[in-house]
Amino acid sequence: MEKLNSTLGAVRSLRSSVRQCFEHLADGTNAELGEDSRTKFLLKFQENFSNMNAQLREVESLINGLQAPQTPYCLGQTTYLAQETAPERQALYSQLVNSYKWIDKVHDHSFLAFNNLNQNNLRRSYTYCSQKRVRIPFASCNNTDPDHTDKLLSEINLPLTSYQVCRPFGSNVVVIVTISRVLKAAIVCKGVLIEWVTVKGFDETLDPDDLWTESRYEVFRKVQEHTHIAMLHFFSPTLPDLAIKSYMTWLNSYSKLFLEACKRCGKFVSNGLPPTWRDLRTLEPFHEECRNC
């Protein structure tokens, strides 16, 4: 990649020196100044010309040093643009590249801003923030390549839980999680960010084509509300992989949905419902109304 960059740089400087040379030629000499300026002009032209030659040679040698890439670059969804037949839409590619650059810059700036703001929040103690500390490798979380998502999901391996990954919407993943013989959940991801969760009973059908119907049981509708709370709690754009892993661990605690009594009141049933809330850190079960008292 670096070689390609330096070659592009060399091409750019070659173009600028050619342009300079031609500008110089176009300006010409002033006929009134006589022989002296003419030799000056000639010398200047020769200098420009040899510059051009040197740069041309450099470009050629750099081009020879380039290797053809072994694998085609992953262009993500943009590869589909090649299949576009309407001529007025073929110009989309350049616009896409521009917006891509723009988003890239936004990411960079926001990441810097995030770091800065993190240092200056309202803490009572001064935290020492060394510049030498290794910066967390920044990963864009809503536009990752599919292999990464697959790998991430295959790493998650929790007891009593099975995962089924499908992609009904292009490259974005829908994970159907079956926890013990208790519940099923469909997790809709954008990249590796969780966008929506649907929870249903073990005996209900959960079809990737129909992710929006709610469960017919009150308890799973309540659990779905709680999964959405947890989804927002675990949301972490800077560490998306960790976020999804902790979310899955939390969700897995529902394997004992009907088996555990509330930690506060010690009862199983309250208002006809089991303890539907699981603490976000300790994973302890609570009734919804026992949670905050």
Binding site: R181, D203, F220, F258, F268, V269
Partner: peptide
């Protein structure tokens, strides 16, 4: 009947508590 659950050993305690209730 506890409709959301399909295995007795999972929800027997819940059923028992409701019955006692």
């Amino acid at each position: 009947e506890y409709r959301p659950c399909v295995v007795l050993s999972f929800c027997w305690e819940m059923i028992r508590e409701t019955l006692q209730g």
